[in-house]
Design a protein around this nucleic acid. Sequence first.
DNA 1: GGGGCTTGCCTTACGCCGTAAGGCCAACCA
DNA 2: TGGTTGGCCTTACGGCGTAAGGCAAGCCCC
Lengths: 234, 234
Amino acid sequence: MGSRMGARKPREPLSRERALASAIALVDAEGMEALTMRRLAAELGVEAMSLYHHLPGKAGLLDGLVDAVATEITSAAERAEADAPGGDWRTRLRLRFLAARAVMLRHPWAPALLSSRPTVPAGVYAYYDGILATLVDGGFSYRIAHRALHAFGSMALGFAQEVFRPDAGGEADAAAAEAEMVALAERLPHLAAMVAAETHDAADPTLGWCDSQTEFEFTLDLLFDGLERHLPRA
Amino acid sequence: MGSRMGARKPREPLSRERALASAIALVDAEGMEALTMRRLAAELGVEAMSLYHHLPGKAGLLDGLVDAVATEITSAAERAEADAPGGDWRTRLRLRFLAARAVMLRHPWAPALLSSRPTVPAGVYAYYDGILATLVDGGFSYRIAHRALHAFGSMALGFAQEVFRPDAGGEADAAAAEAEMVALAERLPHLAAMVAAETHDAADPTLGWCDSQTEFEFTLDLLFDGLERHLPRA
DNA sequence: GGGGCTTGCCTTACGCCGTAAGGCCAACCA
DNA sequence: TGGTTGGCCTTACGGCGTAAGGCAAGCCCC
């Protein structure tokens, strides 16, 4: 008896894939600092050292995470571009970048992890290749396409950098916050003026006062406008 | 006897300033991962716990580093712009950004540290204020200046991102590297074509094949060209 | 069918890390 | 002169990544 009723096995045998999936879920839920070998093992119902039979140490685990998001980005970008077959290079690139951004927003830890790697993760090259394909198909020389890749920089990867986070830390002590704002207005007049100007004519429907999606697309257009002048036939 | 011949004192008494200066020197020389409380204390000829009389823990130490580079950047940018009093907003911004970049190149650990902070370091606001001043002085509305700040993103801070680092890891086993290159050309045709195109007509004097300074300035011009269309009088 | 090998997981232990708690000694002030 | 204070040290705790080895179950080949 026993081998035929196998479904009762207390747990499936652990593997690199299971470990990576669990790690991603853990990091999505609790952030990078929660990812320790002991904690991940506990999440899998196992002891820490057991992970070393499937992963080459912590660095290897991080490599696995990086590869996972890199392929997620690449396939998302590929799918997005395939959905608009007739578009010009701008709209196709835009779709790629927005797809990459969507992935990054799902995994807020990914930008820091990607840029912390000492070398470009191998999986990212495939993504860059797709961007290059779109550019050269759009008429750019490889020289300019190369520069464009640099110009896009972290935008191509969809990094959602929130330059201003005025709400960080809750809203306790609003009076003190206002006092600090007044003090800030004296030391940093232009910043204060900008905040005032932006909050006053807030007739537009941006939430808070920084709509990162809008900023992202504005930057995209800025770069695209600048790039367009470098088309050989222009 | 003793108090008059003070210069013989075995060491000066340690302070926040001395600790921060030593920390910056250590990190410049050996990277962020070398910065531990014990190591920093050893560097100062002291035990780890002594640091806690001058710094509020490791996080406070990192805050100190962040503040130090922020003020270094701000003052460098201010000095750079002051050196060209008659220029238009483009050249003045360019001077600011290149000054910031120079600081970052002196402290390669700074970008990751700055962007790892949960909130924008206070000292960075002063730097942004200077950029805003240049923009509004150049005729931009606060709305567009705000967007420009987002558009510049990490460029404003001079982040030197090296997208391609083909030499990482030495040059051992050149044959294997070439084999890998061939395999890569099959999987990533556009990337391979770009590398080929760029290395063949390398008549220009760029070192290696990515001159990050050139890429940086190309991106600056791209953004500036795009921004210029948003001037109200254009 | 049984001995040896492989596989998968566990136990123990080491040297790092940040830091809480408290001791000791010299300088200073009353 | 004696108490107080400040600067530095000692000890210790829990957590980290991981090296080294143990132990039981399954498999292969004779």
